[in-house]
């Protein structure tokens, strides 16, 4: 399912491009990875050990629901890291992995 962002489209600004599961998406400078993902779509950002859909939640580093693989490193708190041009993001599925990669849908 493709779900539209749950947030209003922002006025255009300079863009930073990252890839999310191989798809190029635009973010704005200063966005955290979690914010960029929420702005991009309302889709799940992660699936838990039981397969439940989750997205970033507290946005302040408390809840760890925004865990995401960043440039091959798993379990990064998406709300605590800023986007950088060319960043490679992958959504995590299942139990939190010890090593990155191999989690493509």
């Amino acid at each position: 399912m493709k779900i539209a962002s749950r947030f209003l489209t922002r006025p255009d600004a300079a863009a930073v491009h990252v890839t999310l599961d191989g798809v190029r998406i635009a973010a704005q400078p200063g966005d955290t990875v979690a914010a960029a993902m929420l702005a991009h779509s309302g889709d799940p950002a992660r699936h838990s050990a039981t397969g439940a859909a989750r997205t970033a939640f507290c946005m302040m580093g408390v809840c760890f629901d925004c865990l995401v693989e960043v440039d091959g490193r798993p379990n990064v708190q998406g709300c605590m890291i800023a986007v950088r041009e060319g960043m490679v993001l992958r959504r995590q599925r299942g139990l939190r992995p010890l090593i990155g990669g191999g989690h493509d849908a």
Binding site: R6, F7, L8, R10, P11, Q28, G30, D31, T32, A35, A36, L38, A39, T55, A56, F57, C58, M59, M60
Partner: peptide, 17 residues
């Protein structure tokens, strides 16, 4: 989401629910 989390998104990313 917690309401405060959205406020953080407003402050840091200009994202409005």
């Amino acid at each position: 989401m917690p309401a405060g989390a959205t406020q953080i998104l407003m402050k840091t990313a200009g994202l409005l629910p």
